[in-house]
Nucleic acid binder design. Structure first.
Length: 264
DNA sequence: GACGATGTTGGCAC
DNA sequence: GGTGCCAACATCGT
């Protein structure tokens, strides 16, 4: 489900509910989604207070007092639900003073982790897609010799973009998904940079995209899917030129684009 | 029922 | 180290 706008929406819905609360108990019923040992994680989390909740790319980071972090990645179908009912795919239950936080994940591609320090794996990601400065973005892109769609999906380039917003940003910038990153002109890089910011901010305003089952921590769907211009609109007319939207595979991911508006 | 698609990433080979 | 392919899993639509 979750790319930057969806994760940001979850964080914003969750923060007012859990900030300042104490973790009384943590239970993990599905080993797959937990990194490390369930007993260790439960012991380390128990008694700690949630000082803040933030977003690091697509990671949700709970900063704990007196120390440590609870790090959650939602994968494709992960959900963090405040005061929900445990269900078939509930794999973790955090009992706080004053409420319960559930982790549901049908496909189990998501991960939960306790860490005393932010892991290297998470720290080494590229700059956040909404925070990176234009000059840094352009410099980073100059080094990337692969297809721009692959580059945008690579979290060590810039963190936060996924399949939906990569396609939508490339459409808005008029750039073909197979164009080579390092070969884009400064002008086109600038268009792409602004397209990324624009589409992510509009999606956050709409509380994310709910394609199938994405919901925030209160169970509310987003509405940005109604404003997708190419993603999963194969065969529909391009809103700009009327040409049929095409779908192809890039980096093994479904990739949607307008063959007329987007140049290589 | 089989098959292919689905928002992600990490491990492996080159 | 960059790059690309595949696998992990459940569910839904054709």
């Amino acid at each position: 489900m979750p790319e930057l706008p969806e994760v940001e929406t979850v964080v914003r819905s969750l923060a007012p509910q859990v900030t300042g609360r104490r973790i009384l108990n943590a239970e993990f019923s599905q080993k797959r989604v937990l990194r490390g040992d369930a007993g260790d994680a439960a012991r380390m989390l128990g008694g700690r207070i949630i000082q803040s909740v933030g977003r690091h790319g697509k990671f949700i980071v709970f900063t704990l007092r007196p120390k440590g972090f609870l790090i959650v990645h939602l994968g494709m179908t992960g959900k963090l639900l405040w005061n929900g009912e445990p269900a078939k795919h509930t794999h973790a239950i955090f009992t706080l003073n004053g409420g319960t936080l559930l982790y549901n994940d049908a496909r189990q591609f998501g991960r939960i982790e306790w860490a005393e320090e932010m892991p290297e794996r998470v720290r080494k990601l590229g700059p956040d897609a909404l925070s990176v400065a234009f000059e840094d973005f352009a410099d980073l892109l100059k080094k990337r010799k692969s297809r721009i769609k692959s580059v945008l999906l690579n979290q060590t380039f810039v963190r936060g973009l996924g399949n939906i917003y990569a396609d939508e940003a490339l459409f808005r910038a008029g750039i073909h998904p197979l164009a080579i990153g390092s070969k884009l002109s400064k002008e086109r890089v600038r268009k792409l940079y602004h397209a990324i910011r624009e589409v992510l901010n509009e999606a956050i305003d709409r509380r994310g995209s709910s394609i199938s089952d994405y919901v925030d921590s209160d169970g509310n769907r987003g509405s940005f899917q109604a404003l997708h211009r190419v993603y999963r609109r194969t065969g529909e007319q391009c809103g700009v030129c009327g040409t049929a939207i095409r779908r192809t595979l890039v980096a093994q991911r479904g990739t949607h684009f307008c063959p007329k508006c987007q140049k290589r």
